[in-house]
Amino acid sequence: MPSFPWPEFLASLPWTALAVAGVLAVTFAVALAQHRHSVMDVAWGPGFVAVAGVSWLLSAGTGDDGRRLLLLVLTAVWGLRLGAHIGWRARDGHEDPRYQAMLSTAPRSRNVFALRRVYLPQGIVMLFVSLTVQVGMFETGALGWLALLGAALWVLGFLFETVGDWQLARFKKDPARRGTVLNTGLWRYTRHPNYFGDAAVWTGLFLIAADSWPGVLTILSPALMVWALAGKTGKPLTEQAMSNRPGYREYVESTSGFIPWAPKRR
């Protein structure tokens, strides 16, 4: 089993934390200028790209070049696409209703409250989830079959996320379908193709890292992402907001909640 360069990896952690802090600082400055803290959603994906980029630079000459490049490219493609998509979706410049509801409970300064409740928690989660990529960058073992399986799962997840977002955007642009439920395309097989895709992307990145020691130890990183998407902030909040829409109950009864599956016959 190839040895892992622990000193080099541990020395990189302050720099990846600084990268996250830099992304959060820029995002907070933009939020103050635009008077909306939902810009944090736009910075979520690019924040992971910044961590991957720093880890890639610091692992040069240490980690396996094939794995380093694969993790960098896959993280960058996912993060930049996600940031661009959310930025385009929020181009009207208005604060997201979820953020409005949360910030309305601020005891004093809304900006200080946002730092504690939005930026700091998301920065910590970003660092923890990205440990899969950070550790993988420093692994010295060559790519194996598990890494190839992870790359294939990443492709599947990226397709689900990208196509699902595209189908949802087209659906929302059609005035005739306003107030109805999207139940065609990928949305016929899962109520959340975008969230499932996100979960598959990070599970795939984990498999690429788990292909060599000690990547398997980072299993809690993708587990946190999957738990948040399927059980905490993704699926539950979306379904709560959709629960009163006509036809949604029937959609829930016939369509898989997360993992794509054939719809049930009614």
Rank of each mutant, 00 (worst) to 15 (best):
F4E: 04
K172G: 00
W6M: 13
L69Y: 09
S38N: 12
A169D: 14
V39Y: 12
P121K: 04
N111E: 15
E95S: 02
W261Q: 13
F160D: 03
G136Y: 01
L146R: 11
P260W: 11
G257A: 13
T105C: 02
S104C: 02
W213R: 01
N111M: 02
W15H: 14
A114D: 01
G234I: 06
L217T: 13
G45D: 05
K232N: 05
L146W: 03
A176G: 12
L18W: 04
G150S: 05
G179R: 04
G150A: 08
A210V: 10
K264N: 05
L149C: 14
V112M: 03
A25T: 13
D211C: 01
P175F: 14
A152M: 11
D165V: 09
V39D: 01
A11V: 08
L156A: 15
V23I: 14
W78E: 12
F171N: 01
L156H: 06
Y251L: 12
G185I: 08
F206L: 04
Y189R: 02
G157Y: 07
P263A: 06
L217V: 14
E161D: 10
S104K: 12
L72H: 08
K235I: 14
S12H: 07
H85Y: 13
P263S: 08
R170K: 15
A151K: 03
A11Q: 09
A11I: 08
V135M: 12
A29E: 12
G257D: 11
L156P: 08
L127Q: 13
T233N: 13
T62V: 15
A200E: 03
W187Y: 11
P14N: 10
A241P: 09
G197K: 11
D65S: 15
R188S: 07
R110G: 05
G83D: 06
T238A: 12
N183W: 07
L205M: 11
V30H: 09
I124N: 01
G61M: 08
L153C: 05
W6H: 08
P7G: 07
M40Y: 10
E95T: 02
V23R: 02
M126R: 13
V73E: 10
T190Y: 11
S109A: 03
L72M: 08
M1S: 11
R36T: 01
L69S: 05
N244A: 15
T203Q: 03
Q100A: 13
I219G: 00
G197M: 03
G179H: 04
Y251R: 07
T233V: 15
A29G: 13
A142V: 10
G234M: 03
T218K: 05
A223N: 09
G257W: 00
Q167G: 08
D211N: 06
V226D: 09
R81H: 04
D64W: 11
D211L: 00
L57P: 01
P97V: 06
P7T: 06
E139P: 00
V26L: 14
R245H: 05
Y195K: 03
Q167P: 09
L159H: 12
R110I: 01
G215W: 07
L131E: 02
P193G: 07
V77E: 09
W44I: 06
G93V: 04
S3C: 02
V49K: 10
T203E: 00
A223I: 06
T238Y: 07
V26A: 15
S243A: 15
A17N: 02
A31W: 01
R265F: 09
